[in-house]
Nucleic acid binder design. Sequence first.
DNA 1: AGGCTCATGACTC
DNA 2: GAGTCATGAGCCT
Length: 161
Amino acid sequence: MALISCLIPTEAGEFTAIFTTKGLAKLSFPTSTPARRSGNDRVSRKWLEQTRAAIEAVLHGRKVKSLPPLDLDGTEFQRAVWNALREIPAGQTMSYSDVARRIGRPAAVRAVGGACGANPIPLLIPCHRVLAKGEMLGGFSGGLEWKKRLLQAERIYFNTN
DNA sequence: AGGCTCATGACTC
DNA sequence: GAGTCATGAGCCT
């Protein structure tokens, strides 16, 4: 499967998106050393624009209108978790145990954390809306600073210690 | 098959 | 509040 790496310019920097022929497979936060080559001319303008608009929406805490098709690579369990995350509306949160219950595996709390960490498409699959018990921050693959920023954009309250 | 790591949470002092 | 433990899934070797 061909992977096409694209640069998505936003006000928060250049995100890197990886597309397959079937859809968006991965999204990475801006890095200090951005990829020199981009395949932006090899994927549909529509997908690129949907991706860019969706990222901007989340950065501003607004509802995402439309997403490109997603081409997710993961186990059944991970997909179940990711699907549950996509049902969390902007401005709302769930705890890791809430998510575990939601997918019918109430004891798989830690595994939910693992699946969140394996989420290939942060922001658009809103793993930042998953907090630990007591509105504690928990973790974030892109770094806690990003998680805080995204939560603040959605006016979501969280505890710090 | 076994061991190790967790973005957890509940429990003990 | 620090220490400890059960726990499910994933990723090694």
